[in-house]
Amino acid sequence: MAERADDRLVRLLGLVAYLDGAGPVRLDELAGRFGVTARQVREDVDALWVSGTPGYMPDDLIDFDAYSLDEGLVHLTRARGMTRPLRLGTREAVALVAALRAMHASRPVQADPGRAAVVGSALAKLTAATGEAASAVDVRLAGDGDPEVLAAVSSALADARRLRIRYVNAADVASERDVDPVRLLTQDERTYLVAWCHRAAGRRTFRVDRILAARVLDERTESHDIDPDVDVTASVLADGGAGAPVATLVLASPARWVAEEVPAESVRDLPDGSFEVRLRVTNPAWLRRLLLSNAPDVRSVAPPEVAADVAAAARAGLAAYGEPARPAETADA
């Protein structure tokens, strides 16, 4: 896709402001700094070279030292007054400051005083440079997770040490496992630990609020060839992929968040304001929990086995509460 004109303009002006008074700078260094290829920087230089003030006589144009350029060095010799770096626009300031504020307040950052200090000072400097416009957007990340667990995970990540965690899964089964932490991912409302699990011999994603205990071990982490960039919601719900069975739910409007927050195969609005959502379910325990939590807004469930399974769990629950009373179980009442 062709680059947007405004993005390129920002870089063209940025190059001139940066190069002004900088002396000769290597082409590949510029490319690294501005996050583009060396070839793109070369094209930018060519564009700058023919730009300037009306008239466009040689003295009107931005100029570079041609001999340096032959040696891969960019040396600006005339800036035509474009020496001041651009201030941040409102939208840019908002995107930057809101992100830093959210990070600063997040548990993984607050769990480590050194980390919190660095984020705090970056935030203070940028807020001073951008002014107050940035308060238009206010983002808060997950607040979950035991501080002691987060502190252990943080220090294991920083020191590249193995962790022993006690973890409870969606089916409420707890187990102990040794993991090599790769990444602490805060995505929306939850924090996840992406790690190599030695018990499963593969990459696993753990919800931090379900890690009951974590201890840093002496062993160093091994390097594993795994992709740390993971779509957590998808991996938690749909590890089984396309072969998993599909469940179809009709939900009343107040449960609309299900359609908004769960990766669904399809969502269809119905005339009365309710809606039908089709989910590919690889984890029956997860679906049972979802339906129990939201039962008052569930109009129908297909296939019928799923409905029967949920209803059986609910009847067992009601029995535990003693209502409907089952005399055999409350014999001494």
Partner: peptide
Amino acid sequence: AVAGITPRV
């Protein structure tokens, strides 16, 4: 300073 942390919205 922020090794291993990935916030995402």
